[in-house]
Structures are given as structure tokens and as C-alpha cells.
């Protein structure tokens, strides 16, 4: 019982770590992107940024383009809650609670369905 509770604590702590690290990574990219945007003289609102293009993202990131940094920041932010749910799913499975793990997987399925529906209907 105490081992199970200890593992349960591990799962919660692991989920907390994922969120903490991810938040800082996302904020770092957003800050860098905003500074680069300022240096490049991009005018927000009146000049819309480039659309999201995953294929061009690595090259634009290496080229130091502000939009690439901002897209990475937004992507990290959007997937962060999913990463926390994945961590919980694995953690609960390892602590021998497949039912709770299954609920986490179901949440992931809903998030995946959101992506699929968005791509299919755009």
C-alpha cells in the first residue's frame, strides 16, 4: 500500500515537473520570438505573421526568424497539457492502476480527435 502511494506521488511529481519545465521552455521561446520580432521591425495586428508550416519550422528556426520561435512557443504550450496527461497515463499504468491510466488515454484520444477534426474541416 505504501509502495503504491509512493508511486502515486511519483506520478503526480512527474506530471508537475513536465508542466514546470514545459512552461519555462514555452515562455523562453515566446520571449525570444518577441524580441526578434521587435528587432526585425514586424508590426503585429496590421502585418499578420506567416501561417503555421511544420515543414519549414526547423530551417526558419535556424535562420533566427521570429515567427519560428513564436510558433515553437505556441506549439509547446498547446502540447504541454497533453504531455502531462501522457505522463499520468504511464505513471498510473506503472503503479498498477490501469483504469486511471485508461481515463488518461481517453483524454488523449479526445485531444487527438480535436486535431483530426480541425485538420479535416479546415
Amino acid at each position: 500500500m505504501s509502495e503504491r502511494r509512493s508511486r502515486g506521488s511519483d506520478t503526480v511529481d512527474a506530471a508537475a515537473r513536465v508542466l514546470a519545465v514545459g512552461t519555462y521552455v514555452s515562455f523562453g521561446f515566446a520571449l525570444a520570438g518577441t524580441i526578434l520580432m521587435l528587432l526585425a521591425g514586424h508590426v503585429p495586428v496590421t502585418q499578420p505573421g506567416p501561417p503555421f508550416d511544420p515543414a519549414r519550422l526547423p530551417a526558419e528556426l535556424l535562420a533566427g526568424r521570429s515567427a519560428a520561435f513564436l510558433w515553437i512557443a505556441l506549439l509547446v504550450a498547446v502540447v504541454l497539457p497533453s504531455a502531462r496527461v501522457i505522463t499520468a497515463a504511464i505513471g498510473y499504468l506503472r503503479e498498477g492502476d490501469p483504469r486511471q491510466s485508461g481515463v488518461a488515454v481517453a483524454v488523449l484520444c479526445v485531444l487527438l480527435a480535436s486535431s483530426v477534426i480541425a485538420l479535416a474541416t479546415r
Binding site: G33, F52, A73, L74, V78, A118, R122
Partner: peptide, 25 residues
């Protein structure tokens, strides 16, 4: 999680302008 489900829909449908979202975030 709730916000990311909604945000994914908007992001993949091209409703997010990174130049506005960055400073706001």
C-alpha cells in the same frame, strides 16, 4: 487540457497570428 483542446482546433485552422500571440502570451 480544456484550453488545449480548443486551441488545437483554432491553431490547425490557421486562426492564430504568432505576431499577436507571442507578446500577449
Amino acid at each position: 487540457v480544456t484550453a488545449s483542446a480548443g486551441a488545437l482546433m483554432y491553431l490547425l485552422r490557421g486562426e492564430v497570428d504568432p505576431y499577436v500571440a507571442g507578446p500577449v502570451v
